[in-house]
Design a protein around this nucleic acid. Structure first.
Length: 647
DNA sequence: GAGCACTGC
């Protein structure tokens, strides 16, 4: 019998083909389901899978937490059940599900973590990977482990694993080939037509794209009905704030006003939420967003999209081990995704601030994250799942040999893996086994291990948790902020400074009895990013739990922060630098030709200690070291000469 | 006087 909420649910395109979908899943170990936006696949296919009557849970993965949680709530409602009962979700720090839940929504990273402890993923009979076309790092690695688990379960004659890959209509063949030519099934969607307009007069060098976007906004505002909201895609905070200021300037001369809403991840949550409010009576809503509005946030009311054609993208280069963050041209698929944002509720328009020739020159799809990331964490995870040969790893798209070797070299340098005696296989060391248990980058888990013998693990845990969170210090020149900044600043560097700030936060949290409103006020007076502190506290708790499970000695160094800096030097020795007087810059001890500057946001940016380590190296307008600590050269010398010897 | 896109375990 159908429940009330099922009857109330709007008919979806997938309803007409439910039986066919069931049959395909039934007949195949793996299948690819292509669903256009609005076809209902994410909510309906897991429910269809329950009709397979396989023992074991049905998992469905999402790249983002919010999606996993809200989908679980919707489906629970459709099944006339509470979340956590028949339908549940599991994301980091939060779970609502039990062993009897039929359907579990989760993040792909969460399932990947589970696979590290149980490579066969025995408790699942069906695993559905949703949004596979986004090609997140976790999705790609998960697909590899699923392929392996399915094969191994078959070989052992244990319960079979069904895999369903769900994707937008692109790159389907890639998924199919990866899974032994798995069948592809297409479900039509329900979206509205979007008219695409090109700026044919632009010559394509794109140098003035921010200015061109500004002009396009003003033109659209003049031409289009005032009730149509405009969503503009730009690349970053600075650009967005600049454009917002200019628009507000122009606005004063206009009789028909615009209401401007900036939108990017670093914005305070309360300010982000403003885009969901309606504009003042008679004004047009104009949202200036980064690609946060491409997938993470859907804003109702948008009928016009203005697309700069640009995106800020981080790319790791294996040769020198440097992350580069730069503005790049988007892909055709990304342009389509942006345009689609205008057709969610009714027909819309997309102004592309580039010519159709520029569009033709774009790549079909964006470079997958796995092809532009440092792979050391991925490789360590796979080896801990039992892989013994890096060359046997076959991913959906294979990163270059250089990328793989760079990761292997880093892990060997950290003492996480070593070659077997005949040099053909890789083994986890005792340290490596522990490091793989922590959901952090290998250099940081090495810092954590190092902190145990130096008896400063309490401090290392705080610092590592903060390094895994957003930027802690907000930009501000308020007096109260400067006072706090001076209070926490340490001449030992950013890590100790962060620790000081975190300890202030802990004390304040106790004092304020966890009252969120008071804490928010306090944080804003101090110029601290409360979201970062709260997140760090959760991460710290999780890391500490893993550390005690792994029976690490958790001790505190009290005020002796030198021990903390020594631990940092152990894990980050590859990032040790020496000051060069002539160049007024730093040189990496491991590659002296590389000149590095201390990032302007660092407490050490105006001092010149002779030796430093940093936790991040990023090329933007210059090559910057971020999160820097003062060290003594002797702390890293032996690790560095050992690393050079091996190379 | 400079300066970080977005996710996630």
């Amino acid at each position: 019998m159908r429940s009330q909420s099922q009857l109330n649910r709007l008919a979806l395109p997938i309803d007409d083909v439910g039986e066919q979908v069931l049959e395909i899943i039934l007949d195949n170990d793996t299948c690819i389901i292509l669903g256009e936006t609005g076809c209902g696949k994410s909510t309906q296919i897991p429910q269809i899978c329950t009709r397979l009557q396989e023992p074991g849970q049905i998992a469905i993965t999402q790249p983002r937490r919010v999606a996993a949680m809200s989908l679980a709530m919707r489906v629970a409602d459709e099944m006339d059940s509470e979340v956590g009962d028949k339908v549940g979700y599991r994301v980091r720090f939060e779970a609502k599900c039990n062993d009897d839940s039929n359907i579990v929504y989760m993040t792909d990273g969460m399932l990947l973590r589970e696979a590290i402890n149980d490579g066969f993923l025995t408790k699942y009979s069906v695993i559905i990977v949703d949004e596979a076309h986004e090609r997140s790092l976790h999705t790609d690695v998960l697909l590899y482990t699923l392929r392996l688990a399915q094969k191994q379960r078959k070989e052992r004659g244990s319960n079979p694993l069904k895999i369903v890959i769900m994707s937008a209509t692109m790159n389907a063949d890639l998924f199919s080939q990866y899974f032994d030519n798995a069948p592809i099934y297409l479900i039509k969607g329900r979206t509205f037509p979007v008219e695409v307009l090109y700026a044919e007069a632009l010559n394509g060098d794109g140098s003035d794209y921010v200015y061109n976007v500004l002009i396009t906004i003003l033109q659209a505002h003049e031409r289009e009905p005032i009730s149509d909201d405009i969503l503009v895609f730009l690349t970053g905070r600075e650009e967005i704030e600049l454009t917002a200021a200019k628009l507000k300037d122009v606005n004063q001369k206009l009789s028909q006003k615009m209401a401007i809403y900036p939108l990017y991840a670093a914005l305070k949550t309360t300010q982000q939420q403003k885009v969901f409010e309606s504009a003042p009576e008679g004004e047009r809503k104009v949202i200036l967003a980064t690609n946060i509005a491409e997938t993470s946030l859907t804003i109702p009311g948008v009928r016009i999209v203005i697309d700069s054609g640009k995106v800020k993208l981080k790319t790791f280069t294996a040769g020198d081990g440097i992350d580069v963050l730069r503005v790049e041209r988007i892909s055709k698929a990304q342009a389509a995704q942006r345009a689609g944002r205008a057709g969610r509720e009714s027909s819309g328009k997309c102004y592309r601030v580039y010519s159709s020739k520029d569009f033709d020159r774009m790549q079909q799809s964006s470079v997958a994250e796995i092809l532009r990331s440092n792979l050391s964490a991925v490789i360590l995870e796979l080896i801990s799942m039992g892989l013994r040969n890096v060359k046997s790893i076959k991913l959906l798209e294979q990163p270059s040999a250089e990328m793989m070797e760079s990761a292997e070299r880093q892990l060997k340098g950290l003492g996480a893996i070593r070659d077997s005696k005949n040099g053909k296989k890789l083994h986890l060391t005792e340290d490596g086994e522990k490091m793989a248990k922590f959901p952090i980058e290998p250099p940081l888990s090495k810092v954590l291990l190092g902190s145990c013998s130096l008896e400063c693990t309490e401090e290392a845990l705080s610092v590592i948790a903060l390094l895994s969170s957003e930027e802690l210090f907000l930009q501000s020149d308020d007096d109260s902020v400067m006072v706090t900044r001076r209070k926490v600043a340490s001449n030992e560097g950013d890590h100790v400074t962060m620790l000081n700030a975190y300890n202030l936060f802990k004390a304040e949290k106790k004092k304020k009895n966890n009252n969120n409103k008071n804490l928010a006020e306090w944080a804003s007076q101090c110029g601290f990013n409360l979201r970062a502190l709260v997140h760090a506290a959760k991460v710290r708790k999780q890391l500490r739990e893993i550390a005690s499970k792994e029976e690490l000695a958790i001790k505190s160094c009290g005020v002796d922060r030198e021990r903390l800096r020594k631990s940092l030097a152990i894990g980050l020795f590859m990032n040790a630098c020496e000051y060069d007087n002539q160049k007024n810059a730093y040189r990496l001890l491991l590659s002296p030709h590389t000149l590095v500057r201390i990032h302007p946001s660092s407490v050490l940016s105006r001092s010149r200690p002779s030796h430093i380590v940093f936790s991040q190296l990023l090329r933007t307008t210059d090559l910057y070291a971020k999160d820097v600590s003062v060290i003594d050269k002797s702390w890293v010398e032996s690790a560095i000469s050992e690393f050079k010897r091996r190379k």
